[in-house]
Computed example of a mutant assay.
Amino acid sequence: MLYWALVFFVVALIAGVMGFGGIASASAGVAQILFFLFLILFVVAVVMRLARGGAR
């Protein structure tokens, strides 16, 4: 998921440099959503692992 967030971020940067504002904005929005979704799932996974006693 983090990979796809980075891919959309790079697409947004390239589109922004080339002057495609609409595509850049849409790609940046998708990248932002994917990044925050990754963060939420990462935090949930860490909390679940700690709750199970997986930290050694």
Rank of each mutant, 00 (worst) to 15 (best):
Y3Q: 14
W4I: 14
F36L: 08
G21H: 09
F38I: 15
A45M: 09
A45T: 05
V30H: 05
I14C: 14
A28T: 02
S25I: 11
L6Q: 12
S25K: 14
V44P: 00
G21P: 01
F38T: 11
V10Q: 01
M1C: 12
I33H: 01
L6I: 08
L6K: 05
F35E: 03
F35D: 02
M1N: 06
L34Y: 04
L37S: 04
Y3N: 09
L6H: 08
G22L: 14
F36P: 03
L37W: 07
V46P: 02
L13Q: 06
F36R: 01
M1Y: 08
L39W: 09
V7N: 01
G19R: 13
A12G: 04
V43C: 11
V46G: 03
L39H: 08
A45G: 01
L39A: 13
F8D: 02
F36S: 05
F42T: 13
V43G: 02
L2F: 09
I23Y: 07
G22K: 04
L13H: 01
G16M: 04
I14P: 07
A31C: 09
A26E: 11
Q32T: 06
A15S: 12
L37H: 00
M1K: 10
F42E: 12
A24D: 03
I23A: 13
I33A: 13
S27F: 15
A31F: 03
G29D: 10
F8M: 12
A5Q: 04
I40L: 14
L34C: 13
F9E: 09
V17H: 08
A24Q: 06
A15V: 10
G22I: 15
I14S: 11
V7K: 00
G19C: 14
Q32M: 12
I14Y: 14
W4C: 04
S27M: 15
L34R: 05
S25M: 14
F42W: 13
Y3I: 11
V11W: 05
V10F: 13
Q32N: 10
L37R: 00
I23D: 03
G16T: 01
V43A: 13
S25N: 14
G29A: 14
I33G: 04
F9T: 10
F42N: 08
G21E: 12
V11R: 03
A15W: 12
G19A: 13
F42Q: 08
G29F: 11
A12I: 04
L41V: 12
V46R: 05
F9V: 00
F20P: 00
S25W: 15
S25F: 13
A5R: 05
I23F: 14
A12F: 01
G16P: 00
G22M: 09
V30M: 08
G22P: 05
S27W: 05
F38R: 12
F38C: 14
Y3M: 11
V11N: 01
F35I: 03
I33T: 12
V30A: 13
G19Y: 13
V46Y: 12
G21R: 14
G19T: 06
F36V: 09
A5H: 04
L34T: 03
L6V: 02
L37M: 11
A28W: 02
A24M: 07
V30D: 04
I40M: 07
F9P: 00
